[in-house]
């Protein structure tokens, strides 16, 4: 499995694209290809205890949402967390990522330049479609 991240653009830092390294601003800067080689583990998952309740007469009040937290091994660790909602697909319950993932990761290009917050976020959201985080998250919920 893999991971990613983001932050302010215009940060140019020449850092070795090897193991995670913590920048002074708190970001771990990595190329996406390097990130993909790292193993990410599910740390915590949970359901929101503050999930919104639909109001109104006769309205259904079933909106199950939650969060899941993943991190790489060792220190410094890459941390990524995102929200999910439970919805049915073809009669089967499934988790869908929602919102903007939280992270300490900033992707860099081949020149070591930050890709910026928006692009890093977009890559991260795409990355979430590349592996089955849902099974692990649901398993985590039942622990």
């Amino acid at each position: 499995m893999t991971s990613h991240h983001q932050q302010p653009a215009n940060h140019s830092r020449q850092e070795s694209p090897g193991l995670p390294h913590l920048s002074q601003d708190g970001y771990i800067r990595l190329a996406y290809q390097t990130f993909r080689q790292l193993e990410m583990t599910c740390l915590y998952s949970g359901m929101d205890d503050d999930r919104p309740v639909t109001s109104g007469l006769g309205a259904s009040a079933t909106s199950i949402t939650g969060f899941t937290e993943w991190a790489s091994h060792g220190i410094p660790a890459i941390t990524i967390g995102w929200d999910w909602k439970l919805a049915g697909t073809d009669g089967k319950p499934c988790l869908f990522q929602t919102g903007i993932p939280g992270r300490n990761l900033m992707f860099i290009d081949q020149h070591g330049q930050d890709l910026g917050i928006e692009q890093t976020t977009a890559i991260l959201i795409d990355w979430l479609k590349t592996f089955d985080w849902q099974t692990e998250t649901m398993s985590n919920l039942s622990c």
Binding site: H5, Q6, Q7, P8, G26, Y27, L43, Y44, E69, A71, P76, A77, T79, G81, G102, R103, N104, M106, I117
Partner: peptide, 11 residues
């Protein structure tokens, strides 16, 4: 807000 994590959350 322009923010990012300093590290993983802990319980």
């Amino acid at each position: 807000f322009r923010s990012h994590r300093a590290g993983p959350p802990m319980r």
